[in-house]
Amino acid sequence: MSLDKATVAKIAHLARIKTDDAQLDAMVADLNTILGFVEQLSEVNTDNVEPLASVTGHGLPLRADVVTDGAYPERVLANAPDRAHGYYAVPKVVE
């Protein structure tokens, strides 16, 4: 399977990475090289094989559904590029 420029542009948009025309050309070539490389997996018979979800086989632990952390908004916001009234601030979304 080979990706064309329009598909790579769509993927870049899904990934929210602005990409200009020249960059797209380079990305198309690189991504097709990588996809060509991973294509060899189609040789492997995986009928009746369960996909591996956890390498250790340990189950996920459960705990009581209670608040165990928090109540320090200053620390949470300390690295925000922009903030207002105790919230993260972003460009206007609703007109």
């Binding site: 925000a80 590029p81 972003v90 460009p91 979304v93």
Partner: peptide
């Protein structure tokens, strides 16, 4: 670009992300 690190502004939220 919302919670930490670099932010490059844009005209919309989407453009800022991109």
């Amino acid at each position: 670009g919302v919670r930490y690190g670099l932010r490059v502004d844009g005209d919309s939220l989407n453009e800022m992300y991109e």
